[in-house]
Every structure is written in C-alpha cells, then in structure tokens.
C-alpha cells in the first residue's frame, strides 16, 4: 500500500483494525491486566454477578470470567492465526499451480475438492477430531485438513481469471518463465483479494474453534478458551447468565471486527491498483 493513499483508510476499516489490535494486545498483556489468576478456584465466591472485584462476574468454580476471557484470547487468536497460516501455506501453492497449468491434474483435483466441499466443514472436522481424540492440537490439525480445499477453490478462480488476461500472454511471449510470471504478475494481483478472504475467514475460524471447544473437542479444561467457557456454562447459565454472556460477546466482537476489516478492505481494493 502506498502511504499517500492512507487517507483512504476509512473510519470503518480503522475501527475494525483498532478492535482487532486491541484484542491481540489484551491477550498479549493478559498477565499484567487480568485482575485475577484465570485458574484460581474460589468456591466461596462462585457464580457471582459483575462487581468491582469481578468486573464480569465469576463462573461455577469462582474463577474470574474477565481474566479467563483475556487469557482465552491467547488460545483462540493464536490457534486461529496458526490455522489461517497453515491453510494458506497448503492452499496457495496448489491453487497457483493447478490454476495456471490446468490439465488433467487440475481437473482431478477440482473434482476431488468439489466433492469434499459437499460435506459441511463441521461434520468432517468433528469426525476427524473424534477419531484422533479431543485436544487443541488435534483440533487445529482437523480444521486445517478440512479448510484448505476452500482456499484452493477461491485462489484458483482468481488465478484462472488472471491467466486469461492479455498481459500474461505477452509476458509469456517475452520469454518469462512460468514461475516468474506467477511471482511477478499473478501474486501481486491476487494479494488483496486473498487478504480480504483471509480476514473474513479469520472470523469463521474463530467461530469454528469456539464451536468445537464448546462441544468439548478443542482445548480441554481448565484451559481458559471462549468456546470451552461456554461449554462450562451449559449447566449454570440458567442461574447466572453472566457465565455465558461475556464469553459469547467476546466471540461476537472478534468476528464482527474481522468482517468489518474484510468488507472495508474489499471496498478499498479497487482503488489500490
């Protein structure tokens, strides 16, 4: 991005980025800003409503909900980024290759991907985690194993479109190698759309992680994680709704910020050519 175009960063994009940055910072600084130890059990003060000592109340073991949410950022955000990175790592080369070379491999690959995409992500992910055994690492593995296909499909469609352009043809005629064409002419062109897609997907991944942890398949207790906190809340939220309200709000805030960033980036993309 050129600096002189920075004024185009509208307030929406700025707000989204600030929220996301704030969330990451809060996760990073959790040991210093959290009012309590997220694992400290205190049965005398269980299921309390918000107060000055416990701003978001306490859960069924008397643990501070605010502290747990802050520490939960570390798990949710870092696993979401790991997943995003790994899916890109797998998806991008495959998409670049199959989209630019075409032919039989591409055909077979797409048929395979289209078939797997017929099965909803969550079903496959749950089955994979179920067979491997619940846990954070297995969950990350399962989500990556399921998600990369949609990346290939999306990025491949971008590559296909670019390869129909005349400038690719002239680049070929000028004697550029295939690899050089991809790096010099294709990658810069698909950078922004991928960023837009990735920002939106970051939110979806967080929802995915939270959903699996909610089912008890992701991070295991007593690790503070948003979805797992909601799982803990299942038996208690009817008595004290705060055990579910605040972790849920944290998830919604994160996902909304991702959507906002993605949408505003998408609007920008045409101006940055």
């Amino acid at each position: 991005m050129k600096l002189k175009r920075l004024e185009q960063l509208n307030t929406g994009l700025l707000a989204g980025l600030v929220i996301l940055l704030g969330i990451f910072l809060a996760g990073l600084l959790a040991p210093w800003i959290a009012p309590h130890d997220p694992l400290a059990v205190n049965l005398a003060s269980r299921l309390q409503s918000p107060s000055w000592t416990y701003p978001f109340g306490t859960d069924h073991l008397g643990r501070c909900i605010l502290s747990r949410i802050l520490y939960g950022i570390r798990i949710s955000a870092s696993s979401a980024f790991i997943i995003l990175f790994l899916t890109m790592l797998i998806g991008l080369p495959i998409a670049l290759l199959t989209g630019s070379v075409r032919g039989r491999t591409d055909n077979l690959m797409m048929r395979f991907i289209d078939s797997t995409l017929a099965i909803p992500d969550i079903v496959l992910t749950i089955a994979i985690v179920g067979l491997l055994g619940p846990g954070l690492v297995n969950m990350i593995f399962a989500i990556v194993l399921v998600r990369w296909a949609s990346y290939v499909r999306f990025i491949r469609s971008l590559v296909l479109k670019i390869f129909q352009e005349d400038y690719i043809l002239s680049a070929k005629m000028a004697g550029n190698s295939h690899f050089r064409i991809l790096r010099r002419y294709v990658l810069p062109e698909i950078k922004m759309p991928i960023l837009v897609f990735g920002a939106l997907d970051l939110g979806k991944i967080v929802l995915n992680i939270a959903g699996l942890s909610f089912l008890g398949l992701g991070s295991q207790p007593p690790t503070p994680e948003w979805g797992a906190m909601l799982n803990d809340a299942t038996d208690y939220f009817q008595i004290s709704p705060y055990v579910m309200i605040f972790p849920g709000l944290a998830i919604v805030l994160f996902v909304l910020a991702c959507q906002l960033v993605s949408e505003k980036l998408g609007e920008l993309r045409y101006d940055f050519r």
Partner: peptide, 22 residues
Amino acid sequence: ALLGSAIPTFWLGFLCIYLFSV
C-alpha cells in the same frame, strides 16, 4: 445480517433458552 453471521449458534441457543425458557 452482520450479527447473524457473527453470532455463534450455540450462544444464540443459550440466549434463546435464557430468554424464552428461564
């Protein structure tokens, strides 16, 4: 629509139960 795609189903379920059942 923004909220609809950002709210996790399980949280929506909890909110519904809390509001309409409890």
